[in-house]
Amino acid sequence: MIDIIWSFTIIAGILFCFLTGNIETAATSLVDGAKEAVELCIIMAGTVSFWCGIMNIAEKSGLTDSFSKRIRPIIAPLFKETCKNAKAFSFVCLNIAANFLGLGWAATPAGLAAMNEMQKTNLHKDTATDDMCMFLIINISSVQLLPLNMVILRQKYMSAAPFDVVMPSIAATIVTTVTAIICAKICQRCKI
């Protein structure tokens, strides 16, 4: 799907430039776009690496694990079946903890392991269970604490205060996650 959006945008953009007589704009925007992407990655490389370094300390020192154990009582009521299965539930908690800290590389493997465990006890293999739906919905609602990419991007485009996005973003994340959980609970009740 993203392939279609991308190719359509490129084609429509170039044709539109030709139609409006701005042939030069088509050429410069392609060159500038590539340049900006590389510039952004160079800026990102420093901050993202720093954050990943710090988070690796958190992971290796056991901080992530102890954090994922602490959030268990909060998460347990959301996963009625899975919380009885210690192994599956520990993966669920680890995934949510990793997402919370912005550890994408640790979140996805933990999430896949959680899904694998949940699938073992799933009676209809092609249908998602309530817990699977809840797990995916929480993941998509975003539970990220620090929107680091946005801070970096704001910095690159000369924001007066790049970090100003953090607290508003946390507030908005609470809105999305609470909405997600309420919706999922309603759907569970209605047995959709």
């Binding site: 919905i137 998509i140 959709i192």
Partner: peptide
């Protein structure tokens, strides 16, 4: 898993609320 039930609906509502 092909039958994803209400996952998309809830995810879309959550995104919209965001």
């Amino acid at each position: 898993i092909k039958k994803t039930r209400y996952t998309f609906l809830c995810a879309a509502i959550s995104t919209l609320s965001g």
